[in-house]
Design a protein around this nucleic acid. Sequence first.
DNA 1: GCAGATTTGTTCGTATGTATT
DNA 2: GAATACATACGAACAAATCTG
Lengths: 247, 247
Amino acid sequence: MAEADKGAAVLSQDSRRRQTSWSTAEAIKGYIRDHGLTSGEPLPTETELCEVLGVSRSSVREAIRTLASLDIVQVRHGYGTYVGGLSLAPLVSGLVFRGSLNQDGTFGTLREVLQVRIALDLGVADELAAHYRGTTNSALRALVTQMRAHSRAGESFAAQDGEFHRQLLAPLDNTLVRQLVAAFWEVHTNVVPMLGIPRAADIDSTVEAHDEMLDALEAGDAEAYQQAVLRHYAPLRNAIDQALANG
Amino acid sequence: MAEADKGAAVLSQDSRRRQTSWSTAEAIKGYIRDHGLTSGEPLPTETELCEVLGVSRSSVREAIRTLASLDIVQVRHGYGTYVGGLSLAPLVSGLVFRGSLNQDGTFGTLREVLQVRIALDLGVADELAAHYRGTTNSALRALVTQMRAHSRAGESFAAQDGEFHRQLLAPLDNTLVRQLVAAFWEVHTNVVPMLGIPRAADIDSTVEAHDEMLDALEAGDAEAYQQAVLRHYAPLRNAIDQALANG
DNA sequence: GCAGATTTGTTCGTATGTATT
DNA sequence: GAATACATACGAACAAATCTG
């Protein structure tokens, strides 16, 4: 585990260099790397790791718990420990917690998340337009139809919205971008209910913007897609600005 | 801790709902929230938390370790536990580990990180241009000068590059974006050395692109800034594409 | 469905290292 | 330097969950 340790260099090295729980976590990461394990494959049992690493079970457990919270390993009670999904779940829970700390921070977090979501959506315009040019996408259109129905009935369409964005970015050859977009969508939908903001009057335009985004992409027009993305986020952006101005 | 728990819903809810170490971590988060604690403020000692939460020390310790790995709390050996910086450190370490898993994944990770960095830099163009319009920034210019000197001497200028980007985005009224940019910069600089790629011949153009970015911003020209950003990343992008094609 | 083996989860007690006063 | 408070580490025991035959 020579070079890859540098990722943990964000922490104070010297003070933690000797601590067994820290080095144990690094050792387990090294074990995964050296044995070429990938997501879902089993790790040795806790007692086996104790022997291999030469530390007590308590230390192994704390190290495993640390790695589990980062989704590097996954523990199944009574069965075993496995390599985790390496997802962005820790990012989500951290940001949601940050947003839940205080009412001011909630609005601020949402505003900041919104700007990031917009930047990411705009940043993949070219790649998406190139992929969708000349295609027809009935599954995505169906989701918009469902969204429209729910919106007119005054109901939430979060599920369909999430699925739309997930499917829309599915062809992207960039796992990180897809995970980031999904993560910030999740933070977004978790933070919004904390605010108790009234249902925006112009929420319907968000639904229609999904259709416009798809229109633009199927026409291969990246710029029109970007404009539709901005219209898509406009109602929420207005609601936040208004709330920040009033509060 | 009613609604804010949803952030943890990414994990398998039912199986973890009853586990004390999981609920203990949630309880500590609730303690922080309910007492309005902010970064740097002290938490009760482990033994006090045991009494308040009614669980054993081991469970409290594992919960604290979980939260520490998410930078929600910070433990100072022999002194006490404090509310953490709520930084994006877990994101960095997770991505660096992902990049270290295998050689193929390293290039892939770098390529993906690069696309995200570009999207974020482009996404803040308007805000930066509005802020820098008509200003002169000697500190940033000095960093570019240092970069140029190091580059011509065949040395690394990573430190100055990181500082340049950090200072450039400092005026942004968006903590999340600044942290994300810094985090991905860190992942980037940690992953690159794993590849052993030769020094690109066109690396000098990266240095000059920093000057061009600043020129554009001081002129208030967001679009010129975006072009400079793309030029800034072009050498590395070429190196990656070439490596992916050859390997 | 049941019983037993395996594995993780929780707890306690004790000894040690570390930082502050 | 001494005293105090605290975190760190270890080992052992028992509880709970899961799989296998």
